[in-house]
Design a protein around this nucleic acid. Sequence first.
DNA 1: AAGAGTATCAACCGCGGCTAT
DNA 2: GATAGCCGCGGTTGATACTCT
Length: 536
Amino acid sequence: MSQAKNEREDGILSSDQTESSLIDDGNCGGGGGAGGGGVLKKGPWTSAEDAILIDYVKKHGEGNWNAVQKHSGLFRCGKSCRLRWANHLRPNLKKGAFTQEEEQLIIELHAKMGNKWARMAAHLPGRTDNEIKNYWNTRIKRRQRAGLPLYPPEVCLQALQESHSTSAVNGGDKGPHDILQNNSYEIPDVIFDSLKASQSVLPYVPELPDISASSMLMKGLGSQYCSFMPPTIHRQKRLRESTTFDPGYSAAVKNEIPLFEQFQDDILDKAARSFGLPFPIEPDPATKNTFQFGVFPGSHTLSNGNFSTSEPAFEAVKSELPSFQYPEAELGNWGTCSSPPLESVDAFIQSPPPTSRAESDSLSPRNSGLLDALLHEAKTLSSAKNHASDKSSNSAAPGDIAESSTFNICEKEWKNCGEPLSPMGYSATSFLSECISASGSSLDEQPPAETFTESHVKSEPADHVLTPEIQDEAPIRLDSCRPDTLLASSWLEQGSGYDKDQTIMTDSIATLLGDDLSSEYKNDSWDIYLKSSMEP
DNA sequence: AAGAGTATCAACCGCGGCTAT
DNA sequence: GATAGCCGCGGTTGATACTCT
């Protein structure tokens, strides 16, 4: 296409291109203005313009893009020049379709980074962020249309397994912030070795998996990435993306809420967010009551204000999981046996205790793309498959009675909200992403410890996170009335070895994805996976 | 062959961080 | 510390190419 376009552009500007529609008033976007004033051209670049820009860069080098217009007579704003150079004129640019290796790398990188195209491009020499972004967006559409998972089986399994296993490691001898203060890419391989070693010892520790799904994947993807990933991420930027509590509100509450309840409310926090509620949840000004999630059985308190002001994970939904169209019949089934695998995953991810919560409450909506997508896709497929049986499954299995009532109530509240987004659809993804990031920040987002409500949390040194007593406490702190925590407890009880966990996780995924998809997930071949991508 | 629908790609836009003043 | 300009990033849009009916 570009060929044809370039051919067309080789000549004099077409009449269209000289029309005012392609002429900017000099204000190139919101950011940089065109320094020289006058009219700036917009739209496709011509070969002549390219030549001018190339010549300019040869003489003056990259950068100072706004000076291009002044010095070269090119009527393009600096941003446009930079973009053109970076995406098309820069030397060593690789053109043409992505190779299979590149595709695999993109998938893996996206699993780790989310929509960080520029960072992904840094690992693909000759490729631009725009190319990768376009490729990914196309791929998403293609795979979604085909009902295929975004991520291949290895990445999915690794993400879940390692979200399990790495949680134990971070809580060990190294505080989460020690890692987080580094670029996650800079985590040395030795850490991953220790992760492996720790897996057998600490099969599951809910405390502070202070590492994102992305980071978790680092291990599974091999140290190759760790070794060459440049420490290019600006920490301040990451900090920008992390969010903080409302200090005033939480500070006002923190002294009144015991730690135990704080943790429960943390779960409520997640639950509420999973239902698409705004955050922080505002108490009803009329009733002075909090949002009616306070009706959660087992919750002793209503909103304690310890809500994250993190940007809603809808962003992640929007950017990476655009399709959320679960049958409404699912609404009341959250936590019932209609979706046990999801539930088990939810339980798994909902179990960070207060200490881990303390480490970070930042969301990483963009960086947990893999897990979000995995759960979303799994849920999409399984819900469609289980839809027919959902109604009958509402006659919950023993032990599910409480949760059925819980989530029936939630359903009511949900409907009251009028939120078109299914809480079911959001629950797994949001819980997962939030628990991952809550218990540990993502690659990008440093958990601003100083922003966390201090009292209980900051007083606990990171070294204590994994102390045996805290581990022992964890199940106690869980609200046994809540189905997710029940499952979490059972998980903890049975989590005696990595192999078992791996089996559990694998089975859960297989069940999650349904028979059709699980068969695909059981296939370990990247070739087949990529082939499936190419064949919608 | 023609039209409709879809895919792909280049470019734009807005936002926000960084830095110099 | 405040402000303005520059720069980069990620999301979105629009044009063109391609495929299907």
